[in-house]
Design a protein around this nucleic acid. Structure first.
Lengths: 218, 218
DNA sequence: CTATCATTCTATTGATCGATAGAATGGTAG
DNA sequence: CTACCATTCTATCGATCAATAGAATGATAG
């Protein structure tokens, strides 16, 4: 059956669109919030022209759409499931590639005791929120926070962490989150807050995974 | 942070391994049962040398492993989640690429009324099995059936369908399944059995998805 | 130990991908 | 209508990928 293979070839095209680190970076940024080409280029460290080309490829693969807003083109993820897809890709890679483990531990390497690494799982966080024993801290930039965040979360962008400590409770454990599993913002925040005596841990996922799981966002 | 990008590049390598129709075909075959290089080459329509090379790529990406059995190398999927990953890729592609819809309808095109297309969902099948109102028919080749199948399923390979009708009950609805969403074996079986007067529908998934979902297999 | 078989490795060729620079397009503000 | 800005398109070049043929490896049977 040749059309069987045509189908697989088409699926392969979509997979190939995911097969480039810069495009994955663009998708991760889009999972935080819709963005213009220039914004995307900056956060991914690409020239505008190059970012545009990668975005065309993602568009051809049906992973993003674009709409015009004035002079700018605003790109969007077409489908929440793309976040899940990337998460699953990550899981499979982490489980089966030794290289991944090395890179992850390198990303979260610190002088500290590794206590800060003990991340809070989704179920644990849900339980803590339900019984009011946990305060949620979003350390992403304000722009991303405004585009969507977890309910009840307090936003303190990492750069302003020490300036806004009065917004943090002392009577509860704090759980910090940011963009996702590989985002180091919350990790950094946990380390700094621990040195200041706060009881704080890191959520092992981020805003996009929470939203993609169908959990409530604001 | 440069190691952030290293991580995404490594993830991209895994995605690139999925970015070829022939490799997806190899993975789909491996989702049915472990197999030798020659078997894999034959079912994917490749030369042995070429199949071997593709398998090396899958190995480097951590998607398959190999073990020697006598003269032969037997390949295995490293991880059940790869089936889930491909299923999610399929869902995203079907939702967002018009091309996919065209190819799928072409694959299942038939002269019949489209009644045969109404597939049974997983939940519906589970309910039907629980209350004993459904008989399960596995129309894959005997070899794949032997390597693993759904509990209570009767195996009648499609080629022998008309020869083994006595194994099929008349008092219950029959649900036929095969390799997965894009496998046409069960579709064909449904059409032929309907003409013979059986009450029969097609399971919308296949053995690998069932197993990957953690449901019991034999 | 030699012949054989299954598989992998190596080298080659054409095809596709990724980055860059510069031209072209499409919308906006004056 | 013109100047300007954000983005896209086009052409180019080096790098990587896919398929093929043929040599090399590794296990087994005699």
């Amino acid at each position: 059956m040749t059309s069987q293979q045509d189908l697989l070839d088409t699926l392969a095209q979509v997979a190939r669109a995911l097969g480039n680190g810069h495009r994955l970076a663009l998708l991760e940024r889009l999972a935080q919030a819709d963005a213009s080409v220039e914004t995307l280029a900056t956060t991914a460290g690409l020239t505008v022209g190059n970012a545009s080309q990668h975005l065309q490829q993602l568009r051809r693969a049906g992973l993003v759409t674009a709409s015009r807003s004035g002079k700018q083109m605003i790109y969007h993820l077409t489908d929440e499931r793309i976040v899940t897809l990337m998460g699953l890709l990550r899981q499979v890679a982490e489980t089966n590639l030794a290289e991944m483990e090395r890179l992850v531990s390198q990303l979260f390497a610190d002088d500290d005791a590794k206590g800060a690494l003990e991340a809070v799982s989704r179920d644990e966080l849900l339980a803590g929120l339900k019984n009011g024993k946990v305060a949620l801290l979003d350390v992403r930039p304000e722009e991303e926070f405004e585009a969507g965040h977890l309910p009840e979360a307090i936003n303190i962008p990492l750069e302003q962490l020490e300036d806004m400590l009065d917004k943090l409770p002392h009577d509860r454990e704090i759980v910090a989150y940011c963009r996702g599993a590989y985002c180091v913002l919350s990790h950094e925040a946990v380390q700094r807050l621990r040195q200041l005596g706060y009881r704080v841990r890191r959520f092992e996922e981020g805003y996009p995974e929470w939203k993609a799981a169908g959990l409530p966002v604001v």
